[in-house]
Design a protein around this nucleic acid. Sequence first.
DNA 1: ACAACATATGAACAACTATTCATAAGTATA
DNA 2: TATACTTATGAATAGTTGTTCATATGTTGT
Lengths: 120, 120
Amino acid sequence: MKSEIDIEFSNEGVIHEDVVRKALSEQPAEELLADLADLFKNFSDTTRIRILSLLISDEMCVADITAALNATQSAISHQLRILKQSRLIKSRRAGKIVYYSLADEHVKTIIAMGLEHITE
Amino acid sequence: MKSEIDIEFSNEGVIHEDVVRKALSEQPAEELLADLADLFKNFSDTTRIRILSLLISDEMCVADITAALNATQSAISHQLRILKQSRLIKSRRAGKIVYYSLADEHVKTIIAMGLEHITE
DNA sequence: ACAACATATGAACAACTATTCATAAGTATA
DNA sequence: TATACTTATGAATAGTTGTTCATATGTTGT
């Protein structure tokens, strides 16, 4: 009997079965890849990446972000919500004002990584 | 006269002018951020990230990718075109078969980076 | 030249997304 | 509590995007 793990895929039209089998066995779990796509979705919109880029400098309140990006308060607020739900940013309230900041260092690293790729 | 660089932003509603000024002065160019968003767009779709993840293991032909991902040949082909236009992958032809592979190491690094963020 | 096979591409459609507009919710101060 | 101010949110809309279907292009062998 075989000691190999059984990898499932439709054999239909496969040309190099060994390559497919190997690649699939080395793949991260399907769910991880979905989460990964969701993570990168946050960086795939100009408004959101501009917000994140601003927050690398310092924490900022909604009004300041809005002015800095020359956008609508509503648009910024909507995007902040998305970023917060993805746990990339966090917020703290001081009276009427809500300050947003990066949730951890990863955002910095990912953006730096991307910039490196582009400006090489 | 002032020796500072003049940063433009609508003063409307600004609360902490110094913070806005500082953040804006540290920002990458507008165009760079747009390119960055475009780069991450490639990783923000499950099909595309699954393709990239497969290609980390080895170069693969369209038929094999199609089978491995249990998708349509057309869908894969369309996404391969997008990835190629973004210069994340390259292709070589051997007869009827076209093999795709990662264009450079950055893809690996970016995916690894993302996985690290998720699985921490 | 023809048949068989691998890949690419254009058009159409459904699903998703970002913005706007109007308004609500939360907070401070008079 | 009335007002002004900051932020959040729901609905509507316009624009974008991924997949499918049909078909074209390119390649090999007969």
